[in-house]
Design a binder for these strands. Structure first.
Lengths: 259, 259
DNA sequence: CTGTGGAAAATTTGATCATATTGTAGGACG
DNA sequence: CGTCCTACAATATGATCAAATTTTCCACAG
């Protein structure tokens, strides 16, 4: 065990992650590369603690670490090839964002959603995200909407192909881009933090429900953006939020006694 | 400087803070001691990084560090007598909560509010905090309301005496207790994080406006709690939020060009 | 003879620190 | 005015200590 760890630690996190960072020319690829790459878009170096944070956050957000599963410092130092200090800082950040739970006995794990939490999340999301959408609607330019449409199309392809990982990433990218466009950093970070709470459960839901049967509210939103109808876009976002959270709630109620 | 730091570092943060923790029998004292003490209420030890975090958070929240002022790791290791690792983790946590700003050139400072931020905060607070109050109203018991009333009374005394530090702490304690009583952890943590954003500016406001001239909405809230009128309590909270944020906005507009 | 309970050792994991390395800012110098 | 240099602060590592969990093993009752 010690020998294995020593072997991994030999190469820095920067080198390990550089290999993964497949740089492409499309905007989407650049968007994803930002999570993994050792360099920022402008070429400045990204510190290790930041890289570890982004990787860890993505792992939680996209359900790579299952709800209830424990996260250990030493496990991350081994799997990411980083030192203890950066890993520690990354974990603390994600805990502060609600993506991880700090149990009293100094154990850290991914929180498990219960019914009360879902109700809270529905209230918060249904309040904040439509407002962000309303603001974004007045600021999005044609090129931005084109990109949103492309992301949404990639999402549909992923659904068709049963590629859950890509579906989750594109779905988040779609929403996240709208929040960024709203030019309201506090609300955007608040909304993004909520995603960290229900993200881990989304993957569980995916296998259970046929999303294709529900109306596609992303399309409504895009149409509203095109016609500059902020109220309609906000309304579509609220329905999208309620639809998604409803699916999580249904799935969790069924699985309530079957972990 | 190095000599001074060395002198302080000799004693651990635990010992330094233990001295400050004047344990009393009143609930308010216990409430405050929790921030500083080296032991939890049940006697379990609190790790240094947690203590540093609480201290730092309080310093930001109550304006002991002014908006715009820089925060350095080494400064905190010296002033709190802790090692670098715990300080580092605490800073990351507060940054993740929005109480500190991580500037690209690896500088950390207390963010300065601008008009756009205040508008965001008004929207979020005016949405979330009344909802928390509504929930709290159905759960607060007579003893809890008694305590809230006592805290509010202490706040009035502090205002009368011109003791801004105590005023800010009691005001926060009043709101914080309501949020905790709402039994909605996600919403409560969201609301508490927002306080971290405008807290530093509250102290600036205090010197400028005569709060006594505005209607005392805490009293309305308490009356609504007593009569079990959740809607009235929520309405009072919303007015209280708008009143407070309005004062900040007025003060900042005046001082806009006079730092 | 076997299964259960509990205590103690062993292992894993977390917390903290001292120190080496790296990057940045601001001043000195051409 | 731009470039280089120095001092300082942040980043990152591995070592060390402490806490908690897991495993092991033995005694004893059934």
């Amino acid at each position: 065990m010690a020998e294995i760890a020593a072997g991994v630690v030999g190469s820095t996190v920067r080198e390990v992650l550089k290999v993964e960072a497949v740089r492409e020319k499309t905007r989407m690829a650049a968007f994803e590369a930002r999570v993994i790459s050792a360099e920022e878009a402008d070429g400045t170096k990204v510190p290790a603690h930041e890289l570890v944070y982004r990787r860890l956050r993505a792992q939680v957000l996209f359900g790579e670490i299952a709800p209830g599963q424990a996260v250990t410092i030493q496990g991350l130092t081994a799997s990411l090839g980083a030192g203890m200090t950066p890993v520690r800082e990354a974990i603390r950040r994600v805990i502060a964002e609600g993506g991880l739970n700090f149990q009293g006995n100094r154990r850290v794990s991914v929180p498990v959603l219960n019914r009360a939490c879902i109700e809270e999340l529905v209230f918060l999301r249904a309040t904040i995200e439509p407002e962000l959408t309303r603001r974004a609607a007045t600021r999005l330019e044609a090129g931005d909407i084109d990109w949103l449409e492309a992301v949404d199309a990639e999402m549909d392809v992923a659904i068709e192909a049963g590629d859950i990982a890509t579906y989750l990433k594109r779905n988040h990218a779609f929403h996240s881009a709208i929040y960024e466009a709203a030019d309201a950093p506090i609300m955007a970070s608040t909304a993004d933090r909520l995603w960290l709470r229900f993200g881990p459960s989304l993957r569980v839901v995916c296998g259970q429900y046929d999303a294709a049967r529900e109306p596609d509210l992303h399309k409504d939103m895009l149409a509203a953006f095109r016609s500059g109808d902020a109220a309609a876009a906000a309304a579509a976002m609220e329905r999208d939020v309620r639809q998604g959270m409803g699916q999580i709630q249904s799935a969790l109620i069924e699985n309530l006694f079957s972990p």
